[in-house]
Amino acid sequence: MTQTDCTTCPAHHAGNLRRLGVDMSNFDYVVALAGNPNVGKSTIFNALTGLRQHTGNWPGKTVTRAEGAFAYGGKRYKLVDLPGTYSLLSTSRDEEVARDFILFGRPDVTIIVADATRLERNLNLALQVLEITDRAVLALNLLDEAARHGLQVNDRRLARDLGIPVVPMAARQGEGVDALLQAVHEVATGQVVCKPYRLKSGSTAVQRAVELLTRQIQALFPDLPNARWVALRLLDGDQRIAQAVRNGELRELAQNGRTAPTPSIPLEIMA
């Protein structure tokens, strides 16, 4: 969460970042990039990998999943840019691709890119991601824009509340890339352990139901890190998750931990 002093230097001091473009061989860690549409996800993706993936100032432009790689601190990282979504609960194709990757792909770190000017809406997605994975970093992007609108975001407070590292950024200006790399590195290597915020329901009936189901899921899959989230999905009637329970995918996930192979996910949106 420290920001380097020299954020305005022309050649930014992104530590020992090596952009590897599409060379994704022998990576040590998988990093997923999630976020709402139009929050600068692609800018961060390009800044980290040196690729120049173009997406316009449009919500919903990255339809396919882009992948790239970078090396930092002696480790090689594979970076997966997920489709921009508002949520992971609905059943649109994009959301399913993003959700499936975070759940079944088990990235070592998930970077949640958030727009500081619409924090509330972006936290909606962030909280959902944190229900699935506890290894996440929040990239608090567009702080320059927020400042222009007279908004100040207390990133320390946010980090304390969310329980994950929060990196203030203005990615278009290249600010904060260094700190982001550092945070990703620390979470990936286990130097920083996240204690992510857990959702609290307003309804006691729901709370009781979630608790009961979570306990049962924990009994069935003791090593599953996101039992509560699975409980929420089952209560919401998510057939994809019910199917994963039925066909043993979830058991496999619980047992294999983070060495699970990256599943191939179809990219066409209108299959």
Binding site: L89, L123, Q152, D161, L162, S201, G202, S203, A205
Partner: peptide, 29 residues
């Protein structure tokens, strides 16, 4: 038991949580 509006309820819960966290972190000039 929890009723038919669970999805609505869930989204409401998430947004309520998000709003509370965002509120604490943001100060307006």
């Amino acid at each position: 038991q929890i009723g038919r509006n669970f999805h609505d309820q869930l989204m409401e819960d998430i947004y309520t949580n998000a709003a509370r966290i965002a509120d604490r972190a943001i100060t307006r000039a």
